[in-house]
Each structure stands twice: as structure tokens, then as C-alpha cells.
């Protein structure tokens, strides 16, 4: 299973070198999409890769703000990954945040209570992991803009939460994978929230529609910016890759523009 041909996304993320530490370890990944093209599938792919990778120590903590578990379970099952079984194995933790609202918004401490509690919950979950798995946890957030809504618009609280999670990446070597919608911020004059998020990010994945409009066999294009990308020789540099994709039920096809017959 694991030896199948790697796709362009894996390559761009550096997942092709099966080095012992998980390549995304300690990194922050941001997936950006827009109304026309959803980037959810990247999250699903990464979720699957993380859970089914060769290192059995990987654990995922999933903060779902947009869909219930049944939605992800159905999708991941088609990708060949059983979330319910993984949850029973203690490798997948699903936090249903659909109804999370900040409880003490009236006292002017908007969001603080909800998110602080959430952070402690995450930290406790990671601390409770067996020793081998502690350094291989991945936190996934779907999606960030709904987190802002839950915080009633005080993006500072969301940013605080992010920074706390970021300390986990540097301290414990966790990775953080975030989905957000880029088009919300493009019309703002100073999208502080967006800029601050991007500052923390190591890998940026951007899903966009094709400039030429809708097509049945190309669903959009991905741009992957990998800062601090280490290749085999050990030299590091920024790496940008750009390719098209087509989403299917059980896989995603990636290809360079114009290489599809």
C-alpha cells in the first residue's frame, strides 16, 4: 500500500523521502481555498497520510467546526482509512466543535473561556498519549474562519489559541494543519489575522479555480509553498510547486498543467 507511486502533492510536501521522523513534524501547514474551489480534500489526504503512514506513532487531534464526524468518516472510509477504528485505537481524537460558542461573551471576555478550555483539552490529550506517540501528534483545524465566528469576531482570541498551539509544535514537535478561506480576507485593507497566521506557517497550500473557468476533468490548481524545504542533499531553500488536480471519491489525481490527454 505504502509503496504506491507518490503523487505530486506528497512530493511537494516532502513526504516522498520516507525519513524516520514524519516530514511534517513540528511544522505548521495552512491550506487556503475559496468559495469556488474547496480545499477540504487536501485536509482529507493529509489526514489519511498521517494515520496510515509507516510510522504507527502518529496521532491526530481533529477540531471539526464545519462538519460532523459522520461526514469525515464516510469520506475517509472511501480513501481507505477507518476513522472509527482509529479512534478506538487511540490514534484519532475527534473534537466536535459544531456547537461551540464562547460561554462568557457577555462579560467582555469573548472567546477566552471556550478556547482556553479547548487548548487545555488538547494539551491534556497529548500529555496522556503513550511516550512514543507524544512527539508525533498532529492537530487539524477545519476551519479557521468558523473559529472566528465562534469567537464572535475577536480574531485576537483565535490568534492566541494559534500561538499556544504553535508552542506545542516547537516544544513537543507536534504539527498543526489549518484550513482557512482566503477570499474572506482579500477585500480587507489590513488583514492582520491572515498575515499573522501566514507568519507562523511553514507550508502554504493554496487551492484555486482554473482561470479559464469550469472544466469537468480539471477541478482546480494547487500551489504549494514549502519554506525551509530540505532535499536529499541537505540544503534548504523555498520551494514552490504548482499543479492541477482532479478530486475523486477514493483518490485525488495531481498532474502538471497540460499533461493530461
Amino acid at each position: 500500500m505504502e509503496n504506491r507511486a507518490l503523487n505530486l502533492l506528497d512530493e511537494a510536501l516532502g513526504l516522498d523521502y520516507q525519513t524516520d521522523p514524519w516530514p511534517l513534524r513540528g511544522k505548521v501547514v495552512l491550506i487556503e481555498d475559496c468559495v469556488e474551489t474547496s480545499g477540504c480534500f487536501v485536509l482529507h489526504q493529509l489526514l489519511k497520510r498521517t494515520l496510515s503512514s509507516q510510522s504507527p506513532n502518529n496521532t491526530v487531534i481533529f477540531l471539526a467546526f464545519s462538519h460532523p464526524l459522520s461526514h469525515y468518516d464516510r469520506i475517509l472510509r472511501k480513501l481507505g482509512c477507518n476513522l472509527v477504528a482509529q479512534r478506538e485505537n487511540g490514534r484519532f481524537f475527534f473534537f466536535d466543535m459544531l456547537k461551540l460558542l464562547c460561554p462568557d461573551e457577555k462579560e467582555g471576555k469573548t472567546g477566552k473561556g471556550g478556547f482556553t478550555a479547548l487548548y487545555w483539552k488538547i494539551q491534556n490529550t497529548i500529555c496522556a498519549l503513550p511516550e512514543n506517540n507524544k512527539n508525533h501528534a498532529t492537530i487539524m483545524i477545519d476551519d479557521m474562519s468558523l473559529m472566528e465566528v465562534a469567537a464572535h469576531g475577536s480574531s485576537d482570541h483565535v490568534l492566541d489559541f494559534m500561538h499556544y498551539c504553535h508552542t506545542l509544535t516547537s516544544e513537543l514537535g507536534c504539527s498543526l494543519i489549518i484550513l482557512n478561506h482566503e477570499d474572506i480576507y482579500t477585500s480587507m485593507e489590513r488583514p492582520t489575522f491572515m498575515l499573522q497566521t501566514k507568519y507562523l506557517v511553514d507550508v502554504l497550500i493554496k487551492a484555486e479555480p482554473l482561470a479559464t473557468g469550469l472544466a469537468a476533468d480539471v477541478h482546480g490548481q494547487l500551489t504549494v509553498l514549502n519554506r525551509d524545504f530540505c532535499n536529499v542533499k541537505g540544503s534548504s531553500k523555498n520551494k514552490i510547486s504548482n499543479f492541477h488536480f482532479k478530486v475523486k471519491e477514493n483518490s485525488v489525481e495531481y498532474f502538471y498543467p497540460g499533461t493530461r490527454t
Binding site: 477540504c40 461526514h71 477541478h219 478530486v247
Partner: peptide, 9 residues
């Protein structure tokens, strides 16, 4: 796109 990741074109 409920329960699926495939967009309908």
C-alpha cells in the same frame, strides 16, 4: 458536498 469530497461540475 455532504459526505463526499468530490465536487459536482
Amino acid at each position: 458536498r455532504i459526505n463526499t469530497q468530490v465536487p459536482m461540475i
